[in-house]
Design a protein around this nucleic acid. Sequence first.
DNA 1: ATATAAATATCCCAAATTGGGATATTTAAG
DNA 2: CTTAAATATCCCAATTTGGGATATTTATAT
Lengths: 68, 68
Amino acid sequence: MKIKELRKSKHISQQKMAMDLNTNQNTISRYETGVREPGISELIRIADYFEVSIDYLVGRTDNPKFYK
Amino acid sequence: MKIKELRKSKHISQQKMAMDLNTNQNTISRYETGVREPGISELIRIADYFEVSIDYLVGRTDNPKFYK
DNA sequence: ATATAAATATCCCAAATTGGGATATTTAAG
DNA sequence: CTTAAATATCCCAATTTGGGATATTTATAT
């Protein structure tokens, strides 16, 4: 989960990001530290938020074989 | 979740797919009918299995803006 | 260097979600 | 029409989740 990198590249706090996504700061923190994982709908919202693919978000970009 | 279409295109049963993914037939059924959702790791395994992107798998392909 | 504030991580817990076994229902063959 | 294969649903224990509160870490100002 590349949330932390993406968030920092946008120079926003966990707090702001949490607000934007209608959730809590601690939830974002957990995603970033990996102690919790978001469900699919949350995953999509985060990907939308950063305008990246889910595959990138979850670190699956280096996988050479997804085409569709 | 485009599991059903992908699975059918490969002409395999839920049973076989479940076996291949070390899970149960009812779990696959639930994913397909939408009553349950897989977690991220399972999502990746399914995407790997069908060799598609997660974005495609969850029906996010039509979103024009993911680039990274 | 230290007080203060901002940012991030962790604790606890109730609620929601999950997967599995068993079983019912639907669909396809014979 | 019967049987078998495929798929969906029920029940339930266990895991996982998010939120509030709080602790800890990090940055800023004096």
